[in-house]
């Protein structure tokens, strides 16, 4: 699924790296605790979070996440946006709550990390 489709599904606004709307996203994960994201994150992840400080972008960069979605209408500070831009990580803002945002993506066949890995293993 392309990032621009995710943007539509979440009725989101993209606030940086707008040129990357055509990247493919294959799975997603959600966490407000960055240690959890570091534990389950896989390269290519779409990270949904309600944590809008710089650690969310740093975590996304460390795990190799492709994009970050901030839920519940939260907006990051300017320095966080600049940091995301410097790391070429697109950032989307959605008004949906975490549960709803995840549910909308899941119902459009975007799997979670474990479902994606299982599918990949079973396909071998």
């Amino acid at each position: 699924m392309k990032l621009k489709e995710i943007k539509e599904i979440l009725q989101a606004k993209i606030i940086c790296s707008k040129n990357l709307l055509d990247i493919e996203i294959h799975f997603a994960g959600a966490a407000d605790l960055m240690s959890d994201a570091l534990a389950f994150g896989e390269p290519g992840l779409l990270l949904l979070t309600g944590l809008t400080n710089s650690q969310s972008i740093r975590t996304a960069d460390i795990i190799g996440a492709k994009a970050v979605v901030y839920v519940r209408g939260k907006k990051p500070a300017k320095d966080v946006i600049e940091f995301a831009q410097s790391k070429k990580i697109p950032v989307l803002l959605t008004k949906f709550m975490m549960f709803t945002a995840c549910g909308r993506l899941f119902s459009h066949n975007l799997p979670g990390v474990h479902e994606f890995k299982e599918k990949k293993t079973n396909a071998r």
């Binding site: 407000d32 605790l33 960055m34 240690s35 959890d36 570091l38 969310s56």
Partner: peptide, 15 residues
Amino acid sequence: EMGFGAGMGLPNIKK
């Protein structure tokens, strides 16, 4: 509030 302190730090390092 920083998104840490979940008690996963050392286990994550080990893993």
